[in-house]
Design a protein around this nucleic acid. Structure first.
Lengths: 226, 226
DNA sequence: TTCGCTCTGAACCGTCTAGTACAATCTAGA
DNA sequence: TCTAGATTGTACTAGACGGTTCAGAGCGAA
């Protein structure tokens, strides 16, 4: 792949700054195009991996002309990183909503396990994002570590802080909150995430997600409940 | 990529059958070369993915001339599938050894969790194989489903049958052996497998594997122990 | 309408890569 | 030593792909 940075034409969009107000007139169309490109690229990258994805394929999937791609993103690498970041912001869908702090451990953990199982079993964006990051860890270590930090680790920290809260209230018996949170997360993947990751099964049904969530809850409470 | 099947020269090796006895004289060298190619290809595929891997790179890694690659494997696809199969046979390293049947649940589960955690935290071949299969699920569904069937699913079945055995002896309280086995497996990944898969951490230390195994054991026994 | 901008489709360039051809060299048995 | 087959290095072909160029079309604002 040619990594040479092309000549920066002044009308290119990617700096996205230093634009006078007149240029805002087509902004809506532009952001629409940008969104279409990101969505299309996310699908193709998730399916084919970084090297397997051609810019022509992205253009086709996004129903956009190829120069438009390069009008919005400097090159394939930039598009890739943008896809990771974009997917991440969409995925950051509160596993731990604020109202959880007012719930008891038994109530709150039911909410958390249900949300987690549903994410692992049914969210296609999460799946694609994971595939993309696994495939790109070698070429884009920064994007991958951003994903790890803002994705799984952030989720774990949030769950761990809830567990700490409940433990502090005497509702759970747990020393290592971090470990407990990770165990809870893994328990919610059982049978519904890995097979999807390897492409060998379809999206789980809502019932199945509930079943897995309930099993995770039971096991977790057997260990850390009071 | 050109998928056209090339002309089959009669001295090509890949049918690996219909060979007269005289041809066996160089068999040792051949199998050595073949092994070198598979090992090298496994490394490169695991690092770079299918599309990111060039046959020249494999030849370089395996310290072999490019035509030798094609002397052993019809094309890149065949090499890829062979790598998956080969890694699988190596990886099929008894998580559930036969002597487990004579152990009690507490003893046996300690063995199983230790082996699982060690595999997830330290085995590079397993890691590469997972990456390869995740990256190739779309192009090689058969290879991936073979991997799922002979890898994770087979492991789960073996663990589940042991759990059933112990439950039958009254040492565990467990109805859904399959689910329990899957939960045990996931618990042994906690914090040591996913980060490696995403390339964001190194191999776990033996101590850390033991810690994770012990935590998995405790949680599992809290739920299913008597 | 004109101005300024983006989008489009197609053609194009340079590079990389899968796979092949070939002639020379090596290896092991007879 | 002879021989058959495997290996090697190099050079080649055909096609795919990243990225660019260009002329023209669409569109909102003044």
């Amino acid at each position: 792949m040619n990594l040479r940075v092309g000549f920066l034409k002044p009308n290119r969009l990617w700096p996205l700054s230093d634009r006078n107000e007149v240029e805002q007139m087509n902004k809506i169309t532009q952001t629409k195009k940008r969104a279409a490109i990101l969505a299309g690229a996310q699908r193709v990258f998730g399916r084919e991996g970084f090297e397997g994805t051609s810019m022509d394929a992205v253009a086709r999937e996004a129903k956009v002309a190829k120069p438009t791609l390069y009008n919005h993103f400097r090159d394939k690498n930039a598009l890739y990183v943008a896809v990771v970041e974009h997917s991440l912001t969409r995925v950051r869908s509160e596993i731990v909503p604020p109202e959880l702090r007012d719930m008891t451990a038994t109530e709150g953990l039911k909410v958390i396990t249900t949300r987690l199982a549903r994410m692992f079993g049914r969210d296609d964006d999460v799946l694609r994002l994971c595939r993309i990051c696994i495939g790109g860890f070698d070429r884009f270590p920064l994007a991958t570590s951003t994903f790890m930090y803002n994705g799984p680790q952030r989720g774990n920290r949030e769950v761990a802080s809830m567990i700490a809260l409940w433990a502090g209230r005497g509702e759970l018996a747990c020393d290592d909150h971090e470990l407990a949170a990770q165990q809870l997360g893994e328990l919610c993947k059982v049978g519904i995430f890995d097979p999807r990751l390897y492409g060998s099964r379809e999206k789980a049904s809502i019932d199945e997600c509930h079943r897995i969530a309930a099993a995770a809850y039971q096991t977790f409470m057997a260990r850390y409940g009071k």
